[in-house]
Design a protein around this nucleic acid. Structure first.
Length: 220
DNA sequence: CACCAGGCAAGTA
DNA sequence: TACTTGCATGGT
């Protein structure tokens, strides 16, 4: 199952079709961290509205967010949905950022990525995908981000078994591919784009770049 | 109208 | 451990 050639084949097909997707859309690493919380189970278009609100209120900095009241913050986050929880989670992440790294992006990113990941996972509201998004897209360190699209796409093509979870899939990619931040960056972006365009719950496979990809022997 | 989006934590058995 | 549920706005 899922050996190196399979994954690179998928990457090649998707990359040729979509081209460079230039993820993560943000003006700074800290903005990536904010976006990583706000985009949890939420369409990016809604996240953009909330980030614009933060920018207009001059709250797109660690220090400003640290001292902003959670209830005030929640109202600004409203368009991104789950706004009470996200205000709480964002405050938690910013507090952690100051407590652990003095609110300095270089200090945080100089931390060993495995250690950083373990610490991020202890922060209220930061799970595996959010942690990996921060490490890859804010720190530009080579970790693979596994998400529901990744799972669905690999499952449809029978590259992974039914019961493979996110951690398993993450390990699969990181075991078989070179630890290249640019590769993992573009690969995750491609999988999300493919999911949105072709691999929804009701698939539109007619023009999917993976439509001729068959791996019958990979099943089981 | 129903469905779903770049998840996560808390509750239940 | 393995499911289930709450969280919520906005686009298709």
């Amino acid at each position: 199952m899922g050996c190196r050639e399979d994954l690179l084949k998928i990457y090649g097909l998707l990359n040729e079709y979509f081209g460079d997707l230039h993820w993560w859309p943000a003006d700074s690493p800290f903005e990536v961290m904010v976006g990583a919380i706000l985009t949890q189970n939420t369409a990016w278009t809604n996240v953009e509205k909330a980030i614009s609100g933060l920018r207009e209120s001059n709250l797109l900095s660690p220090a400003a967010l640290l001292k902003t009241d959670e209830k005030i913050l929640a109202e600004i986050l409203r368009p991104s949905g789950y706004y009470h929880i996200k205000a709480k989670r964002l405050k938690s992440l910013v507090r952690f950022y100051f407590d652990e790294y003095s609110g300095n992006i270089d200090t945080m990113c100089n931390e060993d990525s495995t250690v950083l990941r373990e610490k991020l996972l202890k922060v209220e509201g930061v799970g595996p995908e959010t942690a990996d998004s921060i490490i890859l897209y804010a720190c530009r360190k080579p970790v693979f981000i596994s998400d529901s699209y990744t799972q669905r796409i690999l499952l449809r093509h029978r590259i992974i078994p039914e019961d493979a979870d996110g951690a398993t899939i993450r390990t699969l990619f990181m075991t078989h591919l070179p630890h290249d931040a640019s590769l993992f960056n573009q690969f995750h972006a491609l999988l999300v784009q493919t999911g949105k365009s072709f691999c929804r719950k009701t698939p539109k496979c007619d023009f999917c770049p993976l439509r001729f990809l068959m791996m019958p022997d990979a099943a089981k």
